[in-house]
């Protein structure tokens, strides 16, 4: 589904990713861990197509097609979803209107009819339950005045509404208390259907107790320096990153 080969990317002239390789197949969950500044959020931004990030070398293939030249909206329409680390507040646009526009844009790109209000409301009601979202949250402006937990829940709610194929979760666990973490994780797990793939970027093993990954990768200095099964996360939690850094430096 996603094949990243020798990816070099920079922001403001500074190279952050430097030769990253990653292959994600349908239905897989890949956790990306790594010390601060290793390039985790850059990877998320490059995948979603943020313009400030420049790809200098390498390839990002999605279903065999290069993503690099595609606009963020075209990537979203092709099924890539980024759950933001810091969701943006948009005063004056209700969550419901925002999502209706987005859902119908995605549908349009697939040659499907736009949903009418009734069908849209029904869809929204179904998906709201996934993240235990209150109806009032859909009428409020997008993320405006939401708590940290509400914002993250809203990201997962949007994800559920847009039904992407590849979900990139950028530190979705940051700023969540235990209860909110459980709700958000349950929402994400409910969207695991054997075909949809996930890239879960996190600092903490804790999240991976709830969302159990197929693979754990360690990103360090812009490269994946170690990959392993889910147990690798536990090892990192226990020992920190120093032993990996040492391995790399040798």
């Amino acid at each position: 589904m996603l094949n990243i080969k020798n990816l070099h990317a920079s922001v403001e002239g500074k190279e952050i990713l430097n030769g990253l390789n990653l292959q994600v197949n349908p239905g897989e969950v890949h956790a990306i861990m790594g010390p601060n500044g290793s390039g985790k959020s850059t990877l998320a931004s490059v995948l979603a197509g943020r313009e400030a990030y420049e790809v200098n070398e390498g390839e990002v293939l999605y279903h065999g097609e290069s993503l690099i030249e595609l606009s963020p909206e075209d990537r979203a329409r092709k099924g890539i979803f980024l759950a933001f680390q810091y969701p943006i507040e948009i005063p004056g646009v209700s969550n419901a209107n925002f999502l209706k526009t987005a859902v119908n844009e995605v549908r349009k790109s697939k040659g499907l009819e736009a949903l009418d209000s009734k069908d849209f409301l029904k869809l929204m009601k179904d998906k709201m339950q996934l993240v235990k979202m209150d109806k009032s949250m859909t009428q409020r402006s997008v993320n405006e005045g939401f708590s940290g937990g509400e914002k993250k829940r809203n990201e997962i709610f949007q994800m559920a509404m847009l039904e992407p194929e590849l979900c990139v979760l950028d530190e979705t666990d940051s700023g969540l208390d235990i209860d909110a973490l459980r709700i958000v994780s349950d929402g994400i797990n409910a969207l695991r259907d054997g075909k949809r793939s996930f890239i879960v970027i996190t600092h903490y093993q804790r999240l991976l107790d709830y969302i159990v990954p197929d693979f754990v990768h360690v990103l360090y200095k812009g490269k994946i320096v170690k990959s392993g099964p889910k147990e690798l996360a536990l090892e990192l939690e226990e020992k920190g990153y120093d032993w990996i850094k040492e391995e790399v430096e040798i």
Binding site: A48, E73, A76, F84, I88, A102, V106, Q158
Partner: peptide, 9 residues
């Protein structure tokens, strides 16, 4: 960018 990342042109 937030709008665009949700598929809105």
């Amino acid at each position: 960018f937030y709008f665009r990342s949700r598929g809105i042109g």
